[in-house]
Amino acid sequence: MSAWKSFLGWVDGDAREQWFSAPEKKQSENKRKPSRHTDLTQSEGVFELVKHLNKEQKRRVFNTLYYISCVVVCIVMFFALLLIIAHLPSFGDPSNPTNNELSQYYIEHGLEDAGAVNLVGNMILSYRVFDTFGESSVLFLATTSVMMLLLRDSRTYTDKLRRYFNREDKAEREVLDHLLRSCSRFLVPIVFTFGVYVIFNGHLSPGGGFAGGSILGGGLILYAQEFGTQGVSRYFTNHLYHIIKVTALAIYGVLLLYYGFMGFNGLNNHIWLGVPGTILSSGIIMPINVAVGFEVACTIYAFYSLFHKGEIK
């Protein structure tokens, strides 16, 4: 059977039986129905060459061809991208089509509409608050799916895994990394303070919920490295994790619903905007930043804990 014929058979599903069938079926090979295609091509050239090779040589030929085609694809892609770049609007030009009336409105009316000094914070948490709610939901769903895949339960928790986790626990208790411990004892309070600062100043300076939450989550991971996950579970349990995560998302959702129901920006929505530039200002932006910050911190620590231990503790 030529390569072309077997390919046609593969397309039609004739060959599947041959590949995936049980061994006793393979013995009755002559009973299989004949392929519907006749050998149309007097195949020569590459296919004829490949036919005479054994399995190992075929694999080697395939690998060589694969790598050569990959190099070609990468080079062609790079030059195609360069060609496109040469026709794109130039870098740093004020008359670019991206600097249109949308960004002009965000810059000139952001302060009176939403009340935050940080115009990017205005944009993502007031004009586009619905979009950012979607982002928080994506994080929530990502943690949920990682929990589905990695959380220990009776079906996935085999003896092999139990031995592995016991070994890890023992190593965590017995092998003391003095450098890491003394450094993180000094660093963890600073990291937590900085994370809280970035969250609560999200409407005044660069940062906000996502950045500050990542810093808080990093601090939690450092703490877990220092005292072990037992140390963290003294005050951050699975129960508390679920409470914080769901409450933060719910607070965000309720604020978003109220804000949307009252007509977003520009209408009389009874939200006190405060004095611009002070910490208690900018309406719903600061509470949403805090909610997002806790959500992201929980997510980051949950990823670490699930990958490390298979449970959130």
Binding site: N99, Y106, E108, V117, L119, P276
Partner: peptide
């Protein structure tokens, strides 16, 4: 795009595109 002085109204020619 972060206002240094909130009392002065912001102009398009001061800041980069925040979008």
């Amino acid at each position: 795009p972060i206002l240094s002085d909130p009392s002065v109204p912001a102009k398009m020619s001061q800041f980069i595109n925040p979008v």
